[in-house]
Simulated scan of single mutants.
Amino acid sequence: MPDAKLTVFVVDDDDDIRKSLSRSLEKRGYEVETHASAQGFLAAYDGARSGCLVLDYGLPGMNGLELQEHLNARKLSIPIIFITGHGGIPQSVQAIKGGALDFLEKPFRQSVLIERIEAAFQIAVERDSARERMQEKAERFDRLTAREQEIVDRILEEPSETSSKEIAGFLGISPRTVDHHRARILEKLGVRSVAELIALAGR
Protein backbone atom coordinates (compact mmCIF):
# COMPACT_ATOMS: atom_id res chain seq x y z
CA MET A 1 0.00 0.00 0.00
CA PRO A 2 1.48 3.40 -0.93
CA ASP A 3 2.50 5.68 1.93
CA ALA A 4 -0.45 8.00 2.59
CA LYS A 5 1.92 10.79 3.67
CA LEU A 6 3.56 10.91 0.23
CA THR A 7 2.11 12.59 -2.84
CA VAL A 8 2.62 11.96 -6.55
CA PHE A 9 2.68 15.38 -8.21
CA VAL A 10 1.81 15.07 -11.91
CA VAL A 11 2.69 18.05 -14.13
CA ASP A 12 1.57 17.68 -17.75
CA ASP A 13 -0.20 20.11 -20.08
CA ASP A 14 -2.13 17.29 -21.80
CA ASP A 15 -5.51 17.05 -20.05
CA ASP A 16 -6.08 13.44 -21.12
CA ILE A 17 -2.71 12.22 -19.89
CA ARG A 18 -3.07 14.13 -16.63
CA LYS A 19 -6.52 12.68 -15.95
CA SER A 20 -5.52 9.18 -17.02
CA LEU A 21 -2.45 9.12 -14.79
CA SER A 22 -4.38 10.58 -11.88
CA ARG A 23 -7.15 7.97 -12.16
CA SER A 24 -4.80 5.01 -12.51
CA LEU A 25 -2.58 6.09 -9.63
CA GLU A 26 -5.48 6.89 -7.32
CA LYS A 27 -6.96 3.43 -8.02
CA ARG A 28 -3.69 1.99 -6.72
CA GLY A 29 -4.01 4.01 -3.52
CA TYR A 30 -1.68 6.90 -4.29
CA GLU A 31 -2.34 10.47 -3.20
CA VAL A 32 -2.18 12.48 -6.46
CA GLU A 33 -2.05 16.20 -7.21
CA THR A 34 -2.05 17.42 -10.81
CA HIS A 35 -0.96 20.64 -12.50
CA ALA A 36 -1.14 21.73 -16.14
CA SER A 37 2.00 23.89 -16.06
CA ALA A 38 5.32 24.33 -14.30
CA GLN A 39 4.17 27.72 -13.05
CA GLY A 40 1.02 26.19 -11.55
CA PHE A 41 3.07 23.58 -9.73
CA LEU A 42 5.54 26.15 -8.38
CA ALA A 43 2.69 28.33 -7.12
CA ALA A 44 1.33 25.42 -5.09
CA TYR A 45 4.51 23.64 -3.98
CA ASP A 46 6.63 24.91 -1.09
CA GLY A 47 8.67 21.79 -0.37
CA ALA A 48 6.78 20.97 2.83
CA ARG A 49 4.95 18.01 1.31
CA SER A 50 6.99 14.99 0.41
CA GLY A 51 6.65 12.60 -2.51
CA CYS A 52 7.76 12.62 -6.13
CA LEU A 53 7.22 14.62 -9.29
CA VAL A 54 6.05 12.99 -12.54
CA LEU A 55 7.04 15.73 -14.93
CA ASP A 56 6.37 16.20 -18.64
CA TYR A 57 9.48 17.43 -20.44
CA GLY A 58 7.70 19.35 -23.21
CA LEU A 59 5.68 21.84 -21.20
CA PRO A 60 4.83 25.19 -22.81
CA GLY A 61 6.41 28.22 -21.18
CA MET A 62 8.76 26.82 -18.56
CA ASN A 63 9.65 23.31 -19.76
CA GLY A 64 10.43 20.34 -17.54
CA LEU A 65 14.20 20.83 -17.48
CA GLU A 66 13.78 24.50 -16.60
CA LEU A 67 11.45 23.54 -13.75
CA GLN A 68 14.03 21.04 -12.52
CA GLU A 69 16.71 23.74 -12.59
CA HIS A 70 14.39 26.13 -10.74
CA LEU A 71 13.70 23.55 -8.01
CA ASN A 72 17.40 22.79 -7.66
CA ALA A 73 18.21 26.50 -7.39
CA ARG A 74 15.63 26.86 -4.62
CA LYS A 75 16.98 23.70 -2.94
CA LEU A 76 13.52 22.11 -3.14
CA SER A 77 14.55 18.49 -3.21
CA ILE A 78 11.93 16.18 -4.72
CA PRO A 79 12.63 13.04 -6.79
CA ILE A 80 11.68 13.66 -10.43
CA ILE A 81 10.52 11.15 -13.04
CA PHE A 82 10.45 12.78 -16.47
CA ILE A 83 7.92 11.64 -19.06
CA THR A 84 8.18 12.80 -22.65
CA GLY A 85 6.91 12.23 -26.15
CA HIS A 86 9.72 14.07 -27.91
CA GLY A 87 12.76 14.30 -25.69
CA GLY A 88 16.10 13.06 -26.98
CA ILE A 89 19.32 11.72 -25.52
CA PRO A 90 20.79 15.18 -24.71
CA GLN A 91 17.66 16.10 -22.76
CA SER A 92 17.63 12.81 -20.85
CA VAL A 93 21.32 13.16 -19.99
CA GLN A 94 20.74 16.71 -18.74
CA ALA A 95 17.77 15.56 -16.66
CA ILE A 96 19.71 12.72 -15.03
CA LYS A 97 22.69 15.00 -14.36
CA GLY A 98 20.25 17.38 -12.67
CA GLY A 99 19.22 14.60 -10.30
CA ALA A 100 16.19 13.10 -12.07
CA LEU A 101 15.41 9.50 -11.20
CA ASP A 102 14.42 8.49 -14.74
CA PHE A 103 13.41 9.75 -18.19
CA LEU A 104 10.50 7.70 -19.59
CA GLU A 105 9.37 8.00 -23.19
CA LYS A 106 5.63 7.98 -23.94
CA PRO A 107 3.94 5.61 -24.26
CA PHE A 108 5.31 3.76 -21.23
CA ARG A 109 3.98 0.81 -19.29
CA GLN A 110 2.11 1.67 -16.10
CA SER A 111 4.09 -1.02 -14.28
CA VAL A 112 7.34 0.76 -15.14
CA LEU A 113 6.02 4.08 -13.86
CA ILE A 114 4.78 2.46 -10.62
CA GLU A 115 8.19 0.88 -10.11
CA ARG A 116 9.91 4.26 -10.53
CA ILE A 117 7.40 5.98 -8.24
CA GLU A 118 8.09 3.43 -5.51
CA ALA A 119 11.83 3.99 -5.95
CA ALA A 120 11.24 7.75 -5.76
CA PHE A 121 9.20 7.36 -2.59
CA GLN A 122 12.03 5.40 -0.99
CA ILE A 123 14.42 8.24 -1.82
CA ALA A 124 11.93 10.78 -0.44
CA VAL A 125 11.57 8.84 2.83
CA GLU A 126 15.34 8.63 3.24
CA ARG A 127 15.73 12.35 2.54
CA ASP A 128 12.97 13.22 4.98
CA SER A 129 14.59 11.07 7.66
CA ALA A 130 17.98 12.70 7.10
CA ARG A 131 16.38 16.15 7.20
CA GLU A 132 14.64 15.33 10.48
CA ARG A 133 17.90 14.10 12.00
CA MET A 134 19.66 17.29 10.94
CA GLN A 135 16.85 19.41 12.39
CA GLU A 136 16.91 17.50 15.65
CA LYS A 137 20.68 17.89 15.89
CA ALA A 138 20.47 21.63 15.16
CA GLU A 139 17.85 22.03 17.88
CA ARG A 140 20.14 20.33 20.39
CA PHE A 141 23.07 22.61 19.56
CA ASP A 142 20.78 25.65 19.70
CA ARG A 143 20.27 24.94 23.43
CA LEU A 144 23.90 25.82 24.17
CA THR A 145 24.88 29.17 25.66
CA ALA A 146 27.52 31.29 23.94
CA ARG A 147 30.22 30.04 26.35
CA GLU A 148 29.14 26.43 25.92
CA GLN A 149 29.31 26.85 22.16
CA GLU A 150 32.84 28.25 22.50
CA ILE A 151 33.88 25.13 24.38
CA VAL A 152 32.24 22.87 21.81
CA ASP A 153 33.95 24.76 18.99
CA ARG A 154 37.32 24.31 20.71
CA ILE A 155 36.71 20.59 21.17
CA LEU A 156 35.83 20.19 17.50
CA GLU A 157 38.75 22.31 16.32
CA GLU A 158 41.32 20.51 18.53
CA PRO A 159 39.96 17.05 19.38
CA SER A 160 43.38 16.06 20.76
CA GLU A 161 43.25 18.86 23.34
CA THR A 162 39.94 18.32 25.12
CA SER A 163 40.96 18.21 28.78
CA SER A 164 39.40 20.87 30.99
CA LYS A 165 42.86 22.28 31.69
CA GLU A 166 43.70 22.63 27.98
CA ILE A 167 40.36 24.22 27.12
CA ALA A 168 40.55 26.52 30.15
CA GLY A 169 44.02 27.70 29.11
CA PHE A 170 42.83 28.50 25.61
CA LEU A 171 39.69 30.37 26.76
CA GLY A 172 41.29 32.07 29.77
CA ILE A 173 38.89 30.59 32.34
CA SER A 174 39.31 28.12 35.19
CA PRO A 175 39.27 24.33 34.65
CA ARG A 176 36.49 24.11 37.26
CA THR A 177 34.34 26.43 35.11
CA VAL A 178 35.06 24.27 32.07
CA ASP A 179 34.03 21.17 34.05
CA HIS A 180 30.71 22.83 34.91
CA HIS A 181 30.08 23.83 31.29
CA ARG A 182 31.15 20.43 29.98
CA ALA A 183 28.58 18.67 32.16
CA ARG A 184 25.86 21.01 30.92
CA ILE A 185 26.96 20.53 27.29
CA LEU A 186 26.77 16.75 27.51
CA GLU A 187 23.35 16.97 29.17
CA LYS A 188 21.93 19.37 26.57
CA LEU A 189 23.30 17.41 23.63
CA GLY A 190 22.20 14.07 25.05
CA VAL A 191 25.65 12.49 24.83
CA ARG A 192 27.80 10.79 27.45
CA SER A 193 31.31 11.74 26.41
CA VAL A 194 33.43 14.07 24.33
CA ALA A 195 33.88 11.26 21.80
CA GLU A 196 30.09 11.02 21.37
CA LEU A 197 29.89 14.82 21.05
CA ILE A 198 32.46 14.77 18.23
CA ALA A 199 30.59 11.91 16.53
CA LEU A 200 27.28 13.81 16.83
CA ALA A 201 28.73 16.95 15.30
CA GLY A 202 30.18 14.97 12.41
CA ARG A 203 26.95 13.18 11.46
Results as ranks from 00 to 15, higher is better:
residue 1 M to K: 11
residue 7 T to V: 14
residue 7 T to L: 05
residue 15 D to M: 12
residue 17 I to P: 07
residue 17 I to C: 09
residue 21 L to A: 04
residue 25 L to C: 07
residue 28 R to Y: 04
residue 29 G to P: 08
residue 35 H to T: 03
residue 36 A to E: 10
residue 38 A to P: 00
residue 42 L to W: 00
residue 43 A to K: 14
residue 44 A to T: 10
residue 45 Y to H: 04
residue 46 D to P: 02
residue 51 G to V: 04
residue 51 G to L: 03
residue 56 D to Q: 04
residue 60 P to C: 05
residue 61 G to C: 02
residue 65 L to W: 06
residue 72 N to M: 07
residue 73 A to H: 06
residue 79 P to H: 07
residue 79 P to D: 02
residue 82 F to S: 04
residue 83 I to S: 09
residue 86 H to D: 11
residue 87 G to L: 03
residue 90 P to M: 13
residue 96 I to E: 15
residue 99 G to Q: 03
residue 99 G to I: 02
residue 100 A to M: 12
residue 106 K to E: 12
residue 107 P to L: 04
residue 108 F to I: 14
residue 113 L to V: 03
residue 116 R to I: 08
residue 118 E to M: 01
residue 120 A to G: 01
residue 123 I to H: 03
residue 124 A to C: 05
residue 125 V to P: 00
residue 133 R to S: 04
residue 134 M to Y: 12
residue 141 F to Q: 02
residue 144 L to W: 11
residue 151 I to Y: 03
residue 153 D to K: 05
residue 155 I to L: 12
residue 156 L to P: 02
residue 159 P to Y: 14
residue 159 P to I: 11
residue 162 T to Q: 05
residue 166 E to H: 07
residue 169 G to V: 10
residue 172 G to P: 06
residue 174 S to R: 07
residue 174 S to E: 15
residue 177 T to A: 12
residue 178 V to M: 06
residue 187 E to L: 15
residue 188 K to F: 15
residue 194 V to I: 15
residue 194 V to L: 15
residue 196 E to A: 15
residue 199 A to Q: 11
residue 200 L to Q: 02
residue 200 L to K: 01
